[in-house]
Design a protein around this nucleic acid. Structure first.
Lengths: 246, 246
DNA sequence: TGTGTTTCTCAGGAAATTCACAGGTTCCGC
DNA sequence: GCGGAACCTGTGAATTTCCTGAGAAACACA
């Protein structure tokens, strides 16, 4: 089931109407806090654990619908944690957090089972999006919601990453895609550059704030080119997207 | 739930009808006093603390619906305070106060989780607006209130920052928007120039007091132009806004 | 390794916004 | 009617904000 919050965002709910539950496992407290907050904002119920033992214990009584699991934990190897988790909750989907270089050998394969992964440092938009995908596919939440965002004649598919305006396909780079996704998940709402930076760029991004301006400029070139513009600047406040007709 | 006070302002209330509770944490007493007054004026119940230890203690027994937290406290790092607060009150939204330059490294990211921040020096209008947003989204208060202020045929949407009179769209600059928002939050109520300056401009604004007159003049040109005026001067007292018919 | 793509910094320029200043107007008490 | 206080608003300059081209660096992939 999906409901629409006052801000117009759609929320995932479990079949019985209760909020989705997610367990976050990472030994860095700053990361679990960051994720917990972001995921709570989605309307989900969050618990966190700082090590493998705690994760298994919490999972046992919290019964989450999905788990975010750092592969590097102090007490146990990520795979060992995964094994024990699976004994408690055979079907729960897992989103792995992993360093960029540790990739190949271990994650590949794991993800084939319907799990997924994100490399550190991640952007919150990405984690949220992948988690939504996992939960949606796992059947914990209602299936009726589909994965396409629509604003006016602009469509964005979160699964296939396809974007089109007025039926015409548009190629976006990864960053452009995430920015557009964030805008489209908050249509008719002014988003400040700081908000955008927080959600779309990695949590440790230290660069100039004007990348946002730059990427807005790229997006405009691709989706507003020639057409009635959908991306608008609110000088001194931020940007927003809305259907052309209005 | 939202009710309308005798003065015509709408207030956020908790589901059980009791007023919203906010904890203010800052080591400068002038700031906690300033904020306490402004927030009490919203009809909220306020407690304040001057350091991290006090904040956690007060939070434990006061159980606030939102927290305003200075990142620079004498005894504890802001993040540490946040961590302990979260242990007591996992879902409480936090509004961070931070110096403009200290931004990037620590706040970025944190705010994305549904928390928010304001840089010092802030304007009270901004603090109130953001706090309202946080509380509304957190679910402590009723969700039914939407984001549009209406006075007569004048409408202001706090999400999209759109303003219209008699259906006609009106473009406002950031400052004009803030000023009009303040007026419309307090319809039929005289607001003194000092009040306006305090609320709409940063608290350390050092300029001429007549910017208020200037901006009222701008607003009149844009929203009262030709039409029945809605913005009225109360000589020696201040300004007020009210529906044209009356 | 080489090539094409993507991300991001930097800097210049255009435009919008903010604000001080000052002269004008209205209001009010005397 | 006079004088002063309060208020209004035109002008213009300083500042802020935004946009975008150019190119360096990082990356992806063969």
């Amino acid at each position: 089931m999906t409901t629409t919050s006052p801000q117009g965002r759609t929320e995932l709910l479990r079949p019985d109407g209760s909020p989705v539950r997610v367990l976050v496992v990472d030994d860095e407290q700053s990361i679990t806090e960051l994720l917990s907050m972001a995921l709570r904002y989605e309307g989900w119920q969050i618990r966190s654990a700082g090590d493998g033992t705690g994760a298994v214990q919490t999972a046992r009584e919290f019964r989450p619908d999905a788990v975010v699991l750092d592969m590097m934990l102090p007490d146990m190897d990520g795979l060992a944690v995964l094994g024990r988790l699976r004994r408690e909750l055979p079907d729960v989907p897992v989103l792995f957090l992993t360093a960029k270089d540790a990739l190949e050998d271990r994650i590949a394969g794991l993800t084939a089972g319907g799990d997924d992964y994100v490399t550190k440092p991640f952007s919150l938009e990405e984690v949220v999006a992948r988690l939504r995908g996992l939960i949606r596919r796992s059947g914990a939440a209602d299936h009726r919601s589909d994965s396409t965002l629509v604003v006016g004649d602009l469509m964005l598919d979160e699964d296939s990453h396809e974007v089109s305006r007025a039926g015409q396909n548009i190629h976006l780079t990864a960053t452009e895609f995430e920015l557009l996704r964030f805008l489209m998940r908050n249509p008719r709402r002014v988003l400040s550059k700081a908000q955008i930076l927080d959600r779309v760029w990695s949590y440790d991004f230290g660069g100039q704030a004007n990348v946002v301006e730059l990427y807005i400029s790229y997006l405009r070139r691709k989706i507003d080119a020639g057409r009635e513009p959908m991306i608008h600047t609110r000088r001194g406040a931020g940007y927003l997207i809305k259907p052309a007709a209005s």
